[in-house]
Structure formats: structure tokens, C-alpha cells
Design a protein around this nucleic acid. Sequence first.
DNA 1: CGACTATTTGAAGGGACTCAAGGCGTGTGG
DNA 2: CCACACGCCTTGAGTCCCTTCAAATAGTCG
Lengths: 213, 213
Amino acid sequence: MNHQGGLAYRDTSIADLARAGETLFAEGDPCRRTIDIRSGVVRAVNHSCEGHRQIMAFFFPGDVIGLPLSNEHRYTAEAATSLLYSRHPVLPFGNASVQTISDPRGLLLHVWQEEKRFMTRGLILGRVGMLARMSAFLISVIPALHRSVGLFDLPMSQNDIASYLGTSPETVCRTLRQLREMQVIAMPRRGRLAIISSQALELLAEGVEPSAV
Amino acid sequence: MNHQGGLAYRDTSIADLARAGETLFAEGDPCRRTIDIRSGVVRAVNHSCEGHRQIMAFFFPGDVIGLPLSNEHRYTAEAATSLLYSRHPVLPFGNASVQTISDPRGLLLHVWQEEKRFMTRGLILGRVGMLARMSAFLISVIPALHRSVGLFDLPMSQNDIASYLGTSPETVCRTLRQLREMQVIAMPRRGRLAIISSQALELLAEGVEPSAV
DNA sequence: CGACTATTTGAAGGGACTCAAGGCGTGTGG
DNA sequence: CCACACGCCTTGAGTCCCTTCAAATAGTCG
């Protein structure tokens, strides 16, 4: 999941800092530069005209976002946590070939990584029942989470998780509690997560009845 | 939505035929060729290990699928209707640059088109309530549908729509009936669709209360 | 015409949403 | 250092929507 070293110039560029909530680029902005996440989490946000707000994906260290697939950005990127990142200039879309010639494999790899994140949300939201959705969500983010002694750091707020899962913060809280009571996960502290039974988590994500776990 | 003429060789290649239900390529297969849809609908399918099946996207004439973003196909492609398409050979992933050099803009356009389809499903499934989801789904597919005298041809079965929307065929049927009773759409025949009030459809997709429409 | 699939409808049950309110954690300012 | 304020998380209660199971009808293909 971490494509360290995917771009040759990564190590030489200076990192920028963004605070939680800061907007990196907005939907409709012209694609001027890609953003290479060093540490922290970025959320891709879509605003509907009625004011509803959806989080379409979370991006993690190693991901490169803002890729010039078209002239304009296709979503708004916000820092979900405090963030360390670097920016790399991009040629206008008409000259995209120049962008790809320098490292076509790198570009396509990053495009694929981005697309995977969107596909994953679809697969998660397509499941029936919040338990299955939450379990699938946890499984999908765990590989990208920072671990310390078997305890994961769940960096996004339950509000963000709710927007991602298409539900309410209350339901997120209740579902996590349910997983705790089933001894599938543990959350010793705010934002800390331990997986007690990853097998049970996978069964739940597949839609197996909770009573059978 | 229809990128006619996106690839120069389209007009000169001979079209293949596939029957409804036929598999064009399977998840995990090596990416040997891209598929250029001429007529009909393709569904991108994901099978979970427990046998559950999700439709991640529908693809329409003008879409090019099976793009070599990685070595292997990322989903299974099946003909949702009888299909006319053409295949174009693709160099192995390591040589992807050669693929892009001939027409980098074309490749990126098609990649973007594919990614948009996956993003769209996420945005649809992220809405609350089946009415909103169904309305958003109809809005998203209408531009790709074949029209005859204001009557659209809805080519996918309600089973497929259910798999796409993450619900059951019964709920799909009931939701369509509800839209009919609200005079928002009409379905004079199986697979035929008329939009009576596209404005109401958009309001419903935005989550406005049905009683307010 | 007959078999099969797709669509439609009914009824019952449970799960998720909403509204409302209370507890916890964090950070800020006096 | 403490008090306060604010946002985040947690919990409760009621309602409605969606799911599931079951069965009938319509449409399609041989």
C-alpha cells in the first residue's frame, strides 16, 4: 500500500504543512500540481448543491493525488488530520504526454491507486447492514494505518467515517460499540484501535450473521 | 459522454459480438486488450468470497474498458445486454509508455471516464434513502441511454440495478413504482422509461422530502 | 404451448434514521 | 494552574424504511 520511492524526486523536495481541515484544492480548480502525501490523512470531499457532503475516499502516506486526468480537479481535497506533503508541478492537460514520458509507470501506478480508493468505497457501500460496512471499512484502512505495538491509530473522526459510510455519526458510534461488545475490536482510547479477531471482522464484512461469529 | 472518435483506429476495426451474460474478461486476468464498446451495456462485477455479487459500474457505447493500469484486470466485465464491441491489443504493463505515446490524451481520457463511473456509484450509494439513490442512478444513466421519441431504453434488468444499488430486486421494483405514482417517471413497457419531471428527479436525488415534490 | 426467468405484490420483523440530551476530551484564556 | 467552552463521542426513544420470505403474475425463449 505504501509506494515509497515511487517518484524519484520525492526525497529531495521540501515538505509543506497543512492543518486539519485545510483545503488543498477544490473541485473545479485547474490541475496545477500533484500532491504527494508524506504523513497524515487527506479526505476527498464532494458537495452536493443542497449542502450535503460526502467523503468519497481517504488518502494516506504514499498516495499521490490531484493527478491531471482532466483539466480540473474532480473532488475537493481536505486535510483530515494535520498533514505533511509535497507539491509537484504538472503540465497542462494538453501536454499530459510530457508528464507521462518522464515516468509513465509511476503516473499509471498512482492513477490506479487513486481509482482503487474510489472503487473500494463503492464495494463497501454496496454491502447490506452497517456492521458489514463498518467491518469492510476497517479492513480497507488498516493496511494504511500507523501501528504501534499492535495498536492502530485511527486518525479520522467518527464524523468523517459517517460521511464516508453514508450514515450518521450516531450509527457509527453504535456500530463500533457493537464490534467492541462482540470482542472483535477494542478501542482503549479515543482514536486508538486494536483488532482482536481479524477473521471475525472479515466474516462480518462478508455479511455473515453476527450471531454466527 | 460519448467520446466518438477518441481513438483513431476505431472506425477501421471489425466489431465482435457478445451475448447477454457473456464474460468479456475476468478479475485477475492479465490485461491483454482493451474493449471499445460500440453498442450495448457492460457491467463491471465484483464477486466476494462468500458468493455475494456486486455490480460496480455500467459501461456504455463510447467507453473503453480493460485499460492496463496494472498487470491484471481489476474487475470482471460481463455483457449486460447483447453487445457490439471491438478489441485492441495492449502492450504489457511494463511497456505502458508505448501505449500512451500513440495517444496519451486518449488513454487518460478513457481512464478518467472509467474512474468517473466508479466515483459515481460511490456518490449514489452514499445517499440516504432508496428514492434518492434510485433518482440519482437514473440521472446518471440517462445521458448514456438510447432515446426514441422522448422514451428511453433502460437496458439493464432490475436485478442488475439492485446489485448496483446494493439492495434487493423487490426494493428496486417498489421504488420505481413509487416514482411512477409520484408522476416523476413513467414506464409504459418493460425496459422503457420516460422522464416526466427531471426537476423532481433531481430534487429527490438531493434528498428533498418526497412530500415536498 | 410450455418452461423458465423477471417482475410485482403482500406481510412481518428488524435495523437505521432522526431528534434530543448527557458525558468526555481538548484546547484556550484568565 | 484552573475554569470554561467547544466539539466530539455516547446513549436513549420513537418512527419509518428496508429486508426477507413467500407467492402470484407477466414476459420471454425455445
